[in-house]
């Protein structure tokens, strides 16, 4: 499967355009729901770039993990904390934004300069193309076995930690009177349950 070079260039241009526009939209749009959906678009564009770089397995992982899990999680968080609030004005906000934009522009110039002045060892060894998935599996079970196992432990810890942090200490029924307790939504004030009284 060899894509013609012109097609590759066109794909790269379209993907990078959607990537940059989407990234600016994520940061700048006032409505956070639009930002979340644009973030999904950014993730899909990044997966397309991975396909251009002969990495179909990582592209699939990107789609599954980022679009399927992280983006949905962010949308759920927006839904749970969706309260219209007028952010109070802060003195010097425009100056702060301008200054941080200057710093970011400087960082960008530095990164571009590094990218163009470093003598990369090009062309490197030929890409193994579709053998990449098998090679990743060999890496994960031979020389990267310890990070692989540590990643599973990390995911377990993150899962338990997220449950512990996000859980509310509500009981289905009042512990003393036995009446069904008011399981308020997150937006409501916390109802005082009879849990701490003797």
């Amino acid at each position: 499967m060899t894509i013609a070079s012109t097609t590759q260039l066109i794909c790269f241009a379209v993907l990078s355009l959607t990537l940059v526009v989407g990234a600016f939209g994520v940061v700048l749009l006032p409505n956070i729901v639009y930002s979340a959906f644009l973030l999904g678009g950014v993730f899909i564009s990044v997966a397309g770039l991975y396909l251009l770089l002969n990495a179909s397995f990582v592209a699939a992982a990107q789609i599954l993990v980022y679009v399927g899990a992280v983006n949905v999680l962010i949308l759920f968080a927006i839904m749970l904390v969706n309260k219209r609030e007028d952010l109070s004005a802060i003195p010097g906000l425009a100056v702060r934004r301008l200054l941080s934009a200057l710093v970011c522009a400087g960082l960008f110039v530095l990164l571009v300069r590094v990218a163009f002045t470093t003598p990369w060892a090009l062309p490197g060894p030929a890409s193994i193309g579709e053998e990449a998935t098998a090679r990743i599996g060999e890496h994960l079970f031979s020389d990267y076995l310890l990070p692989f196992e540590l990643a599973s432990v990390l995911l377990l810890m993150a899962m338990i930690g997220a449950i512990v942090l996000a859980r509310r200490d509500v009981f289905a029924s009042d512990v003393i009177t036995g009446e069904p307790a008011d399981q308020g939504l997150l937006e409501k004030a916390r109802t005082p349950l009879l849990t701490s009284k003797p």
Binding site: Y66, A69, A121, G124, Y144, P147, L154, A158
Partner: peptide, 28 residues
Amino acid sequence: LDGQLIRGQVFAIFVITVAAAEAAVGLA
């Protein structure tokens, strides 16, 4: 630069894993 031993792809997979854990804990 590393077409034969695609170590960057393995690192990218680990970064994706850690990013998923970070997103879950951060949103909690």
